[in-house]
């Protein structure tokens, strides 16, 4: 009995790709994809990418992102000194599929874009006040905003790791370079740490990794 169950499980496992493939429509005709990039949620970002086929080998990808949060940011990046954020980003990619496979396709993509973000922080600053005709200075705690303009160029390699009917999951890995310029109001005693590669005001080489899931038609 045990052997029969084992054999059945083995057969089902082996047959699964055939069964699932037999139920899929021909996906050669997909010309558009709408893909969600969920990891941006960790940075209070909402990113959906639109892929459009140019020819059998090339696709163009538009990646708009909205960042918004009106309270202290999430704890995942240790950025507890951020009390809110707003931002937009526009990126474009060119994806090249060097092999003409129908499924599990590998690709290389290159692109870049611009990000504008404003982050609210909390710190002390010197504030002057008059008392009995004398000018005194004291610490005043207050919120302040940084505005960051960032340009990034990235290159990555990816693979369609799962396809079922119109559903698609792909993953990519690569690196890039970011040039960020951050303006800050004067007079504050800043206590923000040096930005890490995950922060938007980081300049330098960055890692690129992600997962996208969405639909194609």
């Amino acid at each position: 009995m045990k052997t029969k169950i084992s054999a059945l499980i083995l057969m089902a496992t082996l047959a699964f790709p055939l069964i699932s493939r037999s139920q899929m429509p021909e996906d050669q005709g997909a010309k558009t994809r709408l893909m969600w990039v969920p990891q941006y949620l960790f940075n209070s970002g909402m990113r959906f990418e639109v892929d459009r086929k140019l020819n059998d080998e090339l696709w163009i990808v538009a990646s708009p992102t909205i960042y918004y949060k009106d309270n202290p940011d999430n704890w995942l990046y240790g950025n507890s000194n951020i009390y809110g954020r707003k931002g937009i980003s526009a990126e474009a990619w060119l994806k090249w599929y060097p092999e003409q496979q129908s499924r599990k396709r590998n690709y290389i993509m290159a692109g870049g874009g611009y990000t504008l973000s404003q982050r609210k922080r909390f710190a002390e600053r010197w504030q002057g006040y008059l008392e009995d005709g004398l000018l005194f200075y004291r610490y005043d705690e207050s919120y302040w905003n940084t505005t960051t303009h960032a340009f990034a160029l990235r290159v990555a390699a990816g693979r369609h790791i799962y396809e079922d009917r119109n559903f698609l999951i792909d993953a990519y890995l690569g690196l890039g370079i970011r040039f960020a310029s951050t303006s800050r109001p004067s007079g504050f005693i800043y206590n923000d740490p040096q930005p890490s590669t995950l922060d938007q005001d980081y300049s330098g080489v960055i890692g690129v990794a992600g997962l996208r899931l969405g639909l194609q038609w």
């Binding site: 969920p38 949620l41 209070s44 970002g45 909402m46 909205i66 960042y67 918004y68 949060k69 009106d70 309270n71």
Partner: peptide
């Protein structure tokens, strides 16, 4: 109920 921002 009063959350403002991007959410899952």
């Amino acid at each position: 109920f009063g959350y403002s921002g991007v959410l899952f």
